[in-house]
């Protein structure tokens, strides 16, 4: 049997809007994932540190502060510094379409905007993780 997917939901930066982060965290838990929520106002370093300690598979960032173009790359770099570059990085918030595309194209992450069903997020994460685990299984 496959193990549970471990997810860290993070709130980087000074943004205090946590309705989305907490809603998604609760929903992913209901979908059977193990979810850790960082709480508010975390630095990229602190998020990467928890991700490494908890050995998570997925990091989801919620950003409604407009600082996404600075924060996604910083979290990615902080994860890589801890040999956690393999983590599936995703997120959402108030992020203009062009920026979403730019971050996706640059390989940082896939992002989910307002109005997304939590089920869609859960299904995407599950599919991505299954794909990875299949690959790992085949390699072993």
């Amino acid at each position: 049997m496959q193990r549970k997917i471990r997810v860290l939901i993070g709130k980087p930066g000074l943004d205090g809007h946590d309705r989305g982060a907490k809603t998604v965290a609760s929903a992913l838990r209901d979908f059977g994932m193990e979810v850790i929520y960082t709480g508010l106002h975390q630095t990229p370093e602190a998020i990467a540190e928890v991700a490494a300690q908890e050995d998570v598979d997925v990091v989801g960032l919620s950003i409604l502060s407009g600082a996404h173009m600075a924060l996604f790359p910083r979290v990615r770099a902080a994860l890589e510094k801890r040999d956690m570059g393999h983590v599936l990085l995703t997120g959402g918030g108030i992020i203009p379409q062009d920026d979403m595309k730019a971050l996706e194209d640059a390989g940082y992450t896939k992002l989910f905007g307002p109005g997304t069903r939590t089920e869609e997020i859960a299904q995407w994460i599950t599919a991505q993780m299954e794909l990875r685990w299949q690959k790992e299984g085949a390699a072993q």
Partner: peptide, 10 residues
């Protein structure tokens, strides 16, 4: 340091 990327945004 905590202000990086957030100045004038919201």
């Amino acid at each position: 340091e905590h202000s990086i990327g957030e100045v004038g945004q919201v």
